[in-house]
Design a protein around this nucleic acid. Structure first.
Lengths: 329, 329
DNA sequence: GACAGGACTGGAAACGTTTACAGCACGACG
DNA sequence: CGTCGTGCTGTAAACGTTTCCAGTCCTGTC
């Protein structure tokens, strides 16, 4: 075990003071020979600077955290990859943590000095969460809809996304469209429901066929889909995200309903499984990659001392696939 | 910003020494009135102990890390959940980090004092990785196949799992079975290939229809599936994991091949998407949940000072679904 | 040959916490 | 009334690092 070799040990081995050793390793002012000796000693001992001590002293940890409600949702994995490639360039480590839907405690814990900043995905952006974000000791960027000034946020325009989707379905001939959504006291739930209703009104069709699932997962969507289909088969179903759409697709198959032949189906998020399902799933790209990139940059500039930017939004994009195009059936 | 209120500030506000404040908050010896005053002062100031300072002093961080090669693979999300429920009971925070397939640097970085231990998923358990694990300053449990003594590991028996799968497919009438696998210089790649070949030999069938994809993702499996199908349609295809099986399913659909009517298809890992696909996917449950639970317990006892346990394995279980049962077609 | 300046070095303080130790007051017991 | 233990408190040392500051040595210049 090469544990715990300290800078003091390195300095002793190199025959210099701790201060010189530190400077030699961190590119401070030091003579060539000192640098060489210290470097050699450090290698010999397998020295690793203690990040706790460094963080305590310098106030910088070189880490940021990403807080997500559900690690199994592929959209967060995609965001994480985008974040990471952005942060890697700055030598910053990205840590992911799965936290409850209302991450008040987790956000408050960010003030404990472990990270230089955080990116928080919050399904419910309550006043408590906002307060926690605002009083956190480190900059926080919220991924989600935040109206409050002084809080950085990057949001998807799922309202507009729903509009694109409904327009597309109507253009494909659907008149009776159902929505399977997650809890409407969450930001995504509320926005997607509102977007759906608004789009239906604009198109002059009914928006009363709505099922609310317990959360935004496969598992919760399945019974919701079942309930909806038992009330009759609509022309099309929209689900609040791809995972829920795929659960719906599965339920359709179980009932012998063929998509898109018997009904059209679409989701939101445009995750990889949407592309791979049979039939492949029409979806709305809510710009997960771009949102993550913007969030990373905003966070980095905040860490560098910049003032909060406020809300930023990313435009949605319709991605049409087999599940809403009858021709391919 | 309630940033940076230190213990010294709390102590001053409560009119006691720093030591007393620390004791009052951490359940040490202190009078009732002191505890009350300190508690009150801490609440007023929104005090959060600095974990860096605490960690530096006490050597304990209350955190463990999980290192995974691909955050998008649902099997890791499942493991993470299992780990978390195990660790939550001990008040330990779980951090996930996405690292390269050969996580030497990342494992070495564990010695930097940020975490009390780690669970590492390594696709390639090279000597370098083993050395890094053994010399790490904190206990590490490897999820994967490790023969070396003195290193804790929990492995899936994917060799046996392949056996179950091939037996099942042969029982369903398949004689010509193809395998789509990831890189064979990885542990899972090698084990699954060997298991496949062994099972085929045991069954007296050919094992020459093998495609090796660049990694274990959807994206890499797709062209591999295409290549295999272009050489003719076998009776059945096995993929090294569910994600790759689903990519194969997609490729079959694109070519107008129906599963299970025209060929059988199965994967490994038994992740949720396998259950949801159409047709639902036969898979091998490699015990992700159990492996994670065992790994967590092993790690906890290691952190408490126990000696390494060595290798532990979890038995596989066949889960038959639509993709390998012709009746349901 | 003195002196300014630069290059380099070591001592020591600081970051915020925990904890060993010593001190203090108080009640009980002899 | 002295002594001892008990319950609580404060002082100070440590954890490992970075960084300020003062010092030393050397080189070049007048």
């Amino acid at each position: 075990m090469a544990e715990g070799s300290t800078l003091a040990a390195v300095a002793a081995r190199a025959g210099v003071s701790i201060a010189s050793a530190s400077r030699a390793l961190n590119g401070g002012i030091a003579s060539t020979s000192t640098i060489a000796r210290v470097q050699q000693a450090a290698d010999d001992l397998g020295y690793r600077p203690n990040l706790m001590a460094r963080g305590l002293q310098s106030g910088r940890t070189g880490q940021v955290a990403m807080l997500v409600p559900d690690a199994a949702n592929p959209v967060y994995a995609r965001m994480m990859s985008a974040l990471q490639s952005e942060l890697d360039a700055h030598g910053i480590r990205l840590l992911m943590q799965q936290v409850p839907a209302e991450p008040v405690d987790a956000v408050a814990a960010l003030s404990a000095g472990l990270v230089d900043g955080a990116i928080v995905v919050a399904l419910r952006v309550t006043d408590d969460v906002l307060a926690a974000v605002r009083t956190a000791a480190v900059p926080v960027v919220v991924l989600g809809l935040v109206e409050t000034a002084g809080v950085d946020s990057v949001r998807a325009d799922s309202h507009a996304g729903m509009g694109l989707l409904v327009d597309h379905l109507v253009a494909q001939g659907a008149r009776r469209i159902g929505l399977i959504v997650g809890p409407v006291d969450t930001t995504p739930g509320r926005t997607r429901l509102d977007g759906f209703v608004a789009a239906c009104e604009r198109q002059g069709i009914a928006a009363d066929l709505v099922e609310v699932a317990d959360d935004f997962t496969h598992a919760a969507a399945r019974p919701a889909a079942r309930a909806m289909l038992e009330r009759g088969v609509p022309d099309a179903i929209v689900a609040a995200n791809d995972a829920m759409a795929l659960a719906t697709l599965r339920e359709c198959a179980t009932r012998g309903l063929r998509v898109p032949h018997d009904l059209l189906l679409a989701g939101l998020d445009d995750t990889e499984p949407a592309e791979l399902s049979v039939p492949s799933l029409t979806s709305i790209d809510l710009g997960a990659h771009d949102r993550a990139r913007i969030a990373a940059r905003t966070l980095l500039s905040r860490i560098d001392g910049a003032a909060p930017t406020g809300q930023q939004a990313v435009a949605p994009r319709l991605v049409v696939r087999e599940s809403t195009t009858k021709e391919t059936a």
